[in-house]
Nucleic acid binder design. Sequence first.
DNA 1: GGCTTTATTTTGACGCTGTCAAGATAGGGT
DNA 2: ACCCTATCTTGACAGCGTCAAAATAAAGCC
Lengths: 209, 209
Amino acid sequence: MSAKDLKPNYHHGDLHDSLLQAATLIIREAGVDGLSMRKLADRVGVSRTAPYHHFRDKQALLSELALKGFRQYSQQIDALFSDPALDGTQRLEQFVRHYLKFALDNPELYNLMFGQALWKSGSPSDALRTEAHATFRDFVKRVGDWQQQGVLPAGCETLRFAQVAWSTLHGLCRLVNDGIYVEASSIDEICATLLSLFRQQLGAISPAG
Amino acid sequence: MSAKDLKPNYHHGDLHDSLLQAATLIIREAGVDGLSMRKLADRVGVSRTAPYHHFRDKQALLSELALKGFRQYSQQIDALFSDPALDGTQRLEQFVRHYLKFALDNPELYNLMFGQALWKSGSPSDALRTEAHATFRDFVKRVGDWQQQGVLPAGCETLRFAQVAWSTLHGLCRLVNDGIYVEASSIDEICATLLSLFRQQLGAISPAG
DNA sequence: GGCTTTATTTTGACGCTGTCAAGATAGGGT
DNA sequence: ACCCTATCTTGACAGCGTCAAAATAAAGCC
């Protein structure tokens, strides 16, 4: 037998995927902090150390979850940009709203993808690093397009603008997700302000103009 | 004896402060994750549970550290704004650079002050909540001043602008501190871009203008 | 001084965590 | 029927936060 997919009563079937799936559920219910390797194993119905034959350690498991998150995110964004009914301005607005929605709908996943747990102290897997970089490159490219289309200001290096814009989006997501400030009700207004700021349409600075 | 301050050879002297002090050191050396109540107690030379008579739990200790961080931050910012040699524009620039510097110089402390560990799941002490809110109010007030002085665009609700601006600063700090992107070398340039963006001086959008 | 009261600290314990080493088991190939 | 290898389990270790109860030392009062 070559394909392991067809044997549901091997030792487990496909423990690797079952673990990822169960981990996703636990994280949704109890947050990343509520996920332990032991509870995870228990949930799937195997012994405590069984997962260690499929993931080097807990971080490796989390890395794969984050990786799946990036794939999911990219897919959603690609879908958004392949809609031919939207012009550049609408795409920018939709992108911003979608980014926030993704982060706010999946706070724990977002935290995994863009949090210190995986990135700090150098552990992220190569696959994760690659995928994340691709995601950022993609964003920079879109910012460049928007600049060319006159949707975003052109008198500014694309990379720098992209870094600042991403900082803004990321910062807002974190402030909300981490419970630091902003009730959900204000988000639409903040989002509008943020878009006006990016487009440099906040009104004249000098009253002497 | 009424004042405990005067007795250095009580049981410990002032275990409360000694713990905070040692915790600060450990965090600087090993990060917040490297701080455990047991190691902390050991470092100070008391038994594992001694700290629990001075802090309800670990979170209470971290809350106090964050509180000290906020006081330290406010003091530095106040000093900056009390310099009469600076005009509004310079103050904005100095503020932005100082905010980044504070966060990047004390990454673990910044994470404590503005991270999910304390804010998420509702545990922050009243004192911490009060101090943090005051800090944000202060920032909003300064943004209002800058708007009146023509340093920042006036055609925009102060609170909204402040929220977006803080998001940008916070997001940048997190991206750098969490090791997600941006080498330290780019920060100055990003900072400049960020300031231009806030001041709406990034250049014309429409090539038809 | 001696006695009591109170503040402070320690010892012991519990359940939880991540993970290593060694043994058990079961499927595939011959 | 055999072995090999992939898979899983059992046992163990060190570490964690924290509770309860016992021990200690200081302070207050006579």
